[in-house]
Structure formats: structure tokens, C-alpha cells
Simulated scan of single mutants.
Amino acid sequence: MKNISGYWDQNVSNWKVANHLQIGTQAFFEEVERYRFEKLDYLPAAAGFDRYCGRKVLDIGCGLGTDTSRFASHGADVTGIDISPQAIALAKENFGWRRVPGQLLIMNGETLDLPSNEFDFVYCHTVLHFTPSPGKMVREIHRVLKPGGTALLMAINRRSWLYFLHRIAGVKIDYMDAPVFHKMDLRDFTELTAPFPDKEIKLYRFPKRTEVHKGWKAAVYNTLFVDLFHALPARMTRNTGYHMLAFVRKTDSVG
């Protein structure tokens, strides 16, 4: 896990939209948050940041604490973990200027040093495809959830529009150079989430105009591809979302 931890120590703050700002400042965190929720406009409704007031929430792979702090700001009792010490250090700074409480810990999501049947909700977004054994992480999530507790699990769809562009036009996908990068399809993701028979899988993250990339490729992408994609019938594109989200519930008392 040392290589993985070191990679994220170097890359957790590597946000191109904020590279003109001093890392760890309020302006940096605000710009990262603005860009993240503009690009992932589906996320607030899907995650339900405001639905867990007074309940125990675990964020696995919390990174800078951007999402974690949203749960906390709405009154959740949050624990955020990350394998990267640099991520946890920055997340603590993020929580500090926001003045929200939370427990932020350096920890491996595949071997959680946390009690069984402890959390009402586990949030695991943009993490499973970066860990060596995603199945082990899913089993740990099942273990720490209370009976009746729920989780949001996310994976990358290798049959997505973005992978199509990557293969035919060499479009860069963020963090594909990470030590681990699993590519799944709907069948793979369904099998991965087998510990949770009570689940619903939905696809999100469809093309949006880019503000990070420049030049003629960005112009073609923004003016041709994005508009053309959204003009196609939904039946042709609905299974090509880049993000697969599983909304799951623990139905038994076995940790």
C-alpha cells in the first residue's frame, strides 16, 4: 500500500482549476468545491448530504474532505478516512476553516480499524477503482454498517462515453496512471456488490463542457461532441455514464 499512499500524497491536491492558488487556503478549497460540484452536478442529490443529521456517516477515501464536510455541515456525525497522510492533513485544514466537526483518520479502507455495525451510512465515491482489492473493501463496508444501514458505492464504467473517447481520440482520463485503476462494467459492478442483495445501480456523469482543457480539441469536444451526445435518444446513451453508483442496504445483522 506504500506506493498507493505515496501516489495520493502527491496527487490529492493536483486540481488544475486551482493550480494558481496556494494549496490549503480557503480560496483553494472553495475553488476545488466549486469545480467538483459543477462537473458532478448529480452528486448532491445522489449523495443526500442533507439527509443524515444526527446519524453516523463514514466517508472512505475522503481526500480533501470536500464531500465529507458537506455531510458534517448538515449535522452528521462524520468520520473520514484516507490512506494518504497528506489528504488527511489537508482535510483537517478544510474542516478547520469551515468550522465543522469531524473525525479524520489515516486508514486503509480494505482493513478498517472500526467497530462492526457502527455506521448508519457509508459513502465510498471515487475509491473502489483505485484500491487493490475492491471486493475486500466492499466486505468491510458491509461489516461496519448497522443492520438496515445504507451505503453509496461508486465505480468507473469501462463501457462509458469517456472510455470511448479515450480509445479513439486519446482523451486523457484523470489518474489513469495511478498504481491501481480497475475498469468495470455493469455486470462486474453487480458482482462486486454481491454482499448487498438489496441494491439499485444507476449511471451518472454524462458529457459536460470542459473548462480545464484548451485549444482546438476542447473546442471540438465542447461544440460538437457534447451537443451531439445530448441530442441522441436516451435509449442509446443511458448505459454510457462514466460513473456507476450502487445504492445499497445492509439487510442482516452479520458483520
Rank of each mutant, 00 (worst) to 15 (best):
D9G: 02
V12A: 08
W15S: 07
K16F: 15
A18W: 08
N19E: 15
N19W: 06
H20F: 09
G24F: 01
Q26P: 13
Q26W: 05
A27L: 04
E31C: 03
E31S: 04
V32W: 03
E33G: 02
E33T: 03
R34N: 14
Y35I: 02
Y35V: 05
R36T: 13
F37W: 01
F37S: 01
D41T: 01
Y42S: 06
A45T: 05
A46K: 03
A47M: 07
A47R: 01
A47I: 03
G48D: 04
D50Q: 06
R51M: 05
Y52R: 06
Y52D: 13
V57D: 14
L58C: 11
D59A: 00
G61K: 01
L64F: 12
R70M: 12
H74Q: 05
D77S: 10
T79D: 10
G80W: 00
G80L: 06
I81M: 09
D82M: 02
I83A: 02
P85L: 05
A89Q: 04
A89I: 00
E93G: 04
N94H: 11
W97Q: 09
W97D: 15
R99V: 05
R99M: 14
V100G: 04
Q103P: 05
L105V: 03
E110K: 00
D113R: 02
L114W: 02
E118G: 06
F121D: 11
F121R: 00
Y123L: 00
V127P: 14
L128F: 04
H129D: 11
H129A: 03
S133P: 11
P134F: 02
K136H: 11
K136C: 13
R139S: 13
E140I: 03
E140N: 03
E140P: 09
I141F: 10
I141D: 12
L145S: 05
G148W: 09
T150N: 14
A151S: 12
L152D: 12
L153P: 10
M154A: 14
A155D: 09
R158H: 15
R159Y: 15
W161A: 07
W161H: 11
L165N: 13
L165V: 08
H166N: 13
I168N: 12
V171Y: 13
V171H: 09
D174G: 12
Y175H: 14
D177C: 05
D177Y: 11
P179Y: 10
V180C: 10
F181H: 12
F181V: 04
H182I: 00
K183M: 15
K183I: 11
M184V: 08
D185N: 04
D188M: 03
E191F: 11
A194R: 04
P195E: 12
F196I: 01
K199G: 14
K199S: 11
E200P: 10
I201N: 09
R205W: 06
F206D: 02
P207G: 05
R209T: 15
T210G: 08
H213D: 11
A218H: 10
T223P: 08
L224W: 14
F225Q: 07
F225Y: 11
V226L: 03
L228H: 08
L228N: 06
F229Y: 10
L232E: 07
P233L: 02
A234S: 07
M236R: 07
G241H: 01
H243S: 12
A246D: 05
F247E: 07
D252R: 01
G255E: 07
